[in-house]
């Protein structure tokens, strides 16, 4: 077998082993590949950072699923830390049936971490006062539209079956007029519905945290201003983690930032494999 045939017919199992090695190595060997913050992530961070504390709420829609947790969960954790550290109240919702469990887990992780260092009740994050998770609702188009008139009519009870009227936070949140921005953390096309209905009809600002596969579709909305900021994939999550860390809202970087070294190594490997495959193809065609 000629050399160009060898490089164009590498066994897929060898590629899998190489992929695994390139992912594992950066966790044990100190590799630091610098990550730049993209403008769309910076824009989202700056918007959240500019909001006055204890004023309008940020609505976070948890629309990701367990299989996309490596991309979307770090976004949720970094965003929750940012909001809680700045005393910006949060209202969580989900229209993806897989969202509730992951939303509750993300809230619990951040609230437990922040409350473990709180010195007083004022420093603590309290459910019903600082945040509320309203849970899952079917029929999202009608729900997104109706929340423009009344959030309570769509979610009369929260995820834990408590009446929303019992929460001090929900006394001052009636509809989208009390929402500074709706940030959709999604693994499917849920943000489109927020853009079509909440943004276009009610003028709500929409930010998005997406899996990387979805990101190219949302650049046009970013360019027209229909989307006010975007985190795309693990890189977007790592960028937000970095911003939150650099501004002192977190004491350590998250899982996305540590995963990005592996990501960069894998990209290098894939670029090399694509080049090798093309060289092999080019030479085998010339010989024919």
């Amino acid at each position: 077998m000629k050399w160009y045939e060898v490089i164009s017919k590498i066994d897929r199992r060898i590629i899998y082993i190489l992929l695994t090695l390139f992912i594992i190595l950066p966790f044990f060997v100190k590799v630091t590949i610098p990550q730049n913050v993209m403008p769309q992530t910076q824009k989202l961070f700056d918007f959240v950072d500019s909001l006055p504390p204890d004023d309008k709420v940020i609505m976070i829609a948890f629309e990701y699923s367990p299989q996309t947790m490596p991309e979307c969960r770090p976004m949720a954790i970094a965003l929750l830390k940012h909001c809680f550290m700045r005393n910006i109240p949060i209202v969580g919702v989900s229209f993806d049936p897989q969202g509730p469990g992951l939303a509750v887990e993300a809230f619990a992780t951040v609230v437990d971490e922040l409350n473990s260092t709180a010195l007083s009740r004022e420093d603590s994050i309290i459910y019903g006062e600082d945040y509320v998770y309203l849970g899952w609702k079917s029929g999202r188009l009608a729900a997104i539209l109706e929340m423009g008139e009344s959030i309570k009519s769509v979610f009369p009870r929260d995820h834990f079956r408590n009446s929303v009227d019992s929460f001090p936070l929900m006394q001052r949140v009636r509809n989208y007029k009390d929402v500074a921005i709706a940030i959709i953390l999604a693994a499917a096309d849920y943000p489109l519905d927020w853009i079509r209905y909440a943004q276009t009809r009610y003028g709500v600002k929409v930010g998005v945290g997406l899996t990387a596969v979805m990101a190219p579709k949302y650049y046009p909305f970013l360019q027209t201003g229909q989307v006010s900021g975007m985190m795309s994939g693990m890189k977007g999550a790592a960028e937000y983690e970095k911003l939150v860390f650099e501004h002192g809202y977190a004491t350590e970087l998250g899982t996305a930032e540590t995963g990005m070294n592996s990501q960069s190594m894998i990209h290098l490997l894939i670029i090399i494999l694509i080049i090798l495959g093309n060289i092999g193809y080019f030479f085998s065609r010339r010989k024919k």
Binding site: P70, V213, S262
Partner: peptide, 8 residues
């Protein structure tokens, strides 16, 4: 990037 992220 998305697929590799899931593997990571």
């Amino acid at each position: 990037m998305a697929r590799v992220s899931l593997l990571i």
